[in-house]
Amino acid sequence: MHTSVSLKALALLVFCCLSTFAGAAGKCERLVATGNPEYPPYLWRDPQSPKHLIGANADLLTLIGEELGVKIEILYTGPWSRAQDEVRTGRVDLLAGAFLTLPRLEYMDYVHPAFFVTPSVVWVNKDKVFPYSGWEDLRERTGGTLVNNSFGQQFDSYAKANLNLEEVPSLTQAFQKLLLGRTDYVLYERYPGVALANTLGMLDSLETLEPPISSEGLYLTLGHNSACNDAWLRGQLAKKMTELTAAGLPETLLQRNLERWKVQQSQVVAPPPTQDDSQ
């Protein structure tokens, strides 16, 4: 009887140890990520598989997943505003690139360090350029931006108190409104803006003003409501991100995806259908 009890106790101890180890190794073998689909060369819809996102951010995330032994699928979930909602609600685990803001901290954990620093600029109609040397010159004018977009906490706070910004679901709409004279300027990141304006045939009609309104770090984030959000995963993501950024890998991936985007556009691949404004 004593031996039987001892064996049961030992078996229970072994089971508990194995369970603890399994928990420490992460409870999810698959993660789902999403992000801004109008963000080349960082992120855009795959012409060959429109349900997925590709780009420098996606490549980095896929590599991190491979090193952790976790499959990470980067899916298109709609416009940038919808992508953020998917992470906020827990339907999607990760955002493949977001600026750090106070509202987002309420529903996402940020993985440090940032893997890119990207400048955001003022886009204007080339025929309607106005004097600009800083934020104050945007007052008394109407600007355009994407729904739920951010340019860093400092600028966001200033814009909320001082600027008139109209939000639309897509950059295509924002640029169209600008060229139609319905807005005076559009706020968006420089490199994705150039890539998309060129694809839309609008680049020659647009101009960017200096200096940038902000230059913000781009982070990987993990939703608070993700079933996979645990200490092990947060720690491993931060460890791998630190290693890869120190090795200069994000910049390598960025240059590779700049060329990838250019090649795709030169092949005149028809863009995947966009979802309607109701999203």
Rank of each mutant, 00 (worst) to 15 (best):
T101R: 03
G193L: 09
D204W: 07
G55I: 12
Y107D: 14
E106K: 13
P250E: 02
C28E: 08
L222W: 13
S170M: 01
E66R: 15
Q48A: 09
L138K: 02
R141D: 02
T208Y: 05
L7H: 04
F21I: 15
V269A: 08
N198G: 08
L200P: 05
Y132L: 11
W135C: 03
N162E: 13
E189F: 14
S6H: 12
F15T: 15
G97R: 04
R260D: 02
R30H: 06
H52T: 11
R190K: 10
D93K: 06
L138N: 07
A174L: 05
D204H: 10
T20A: 14
G248E: 01
K27D: 06
E140R: 00
T142W: 02
L180K: 14
F175W: 06
A238S: 15
V168D: 04
F115K: 04
T221N: 05
D85W: 07
E66C: 11
V111R: 05
P37L: 02
T118D: 12
L68E: 11
R139D: 08
T199S: 03
L146G: 04
T242E: 14
W123F: 12
P40T: 15
P37F: 01
E29Y: 15
S19A: 14
L200E: 04
E106M: 12
A83P: 07
T199R: 00
Q255I: 12
Y42L: 08
S133Q: 15
P250R: 03
P250L: 06
V32R: 02
Y188M: 06
E189K: 12
D137A: 12
A56Q: 00
E136D: 11
V129A: 09
E166F: 09
N36W: 02
P37Q: 08
K128T: 02
K128P: 07
L237P: 07
L75Q: 01
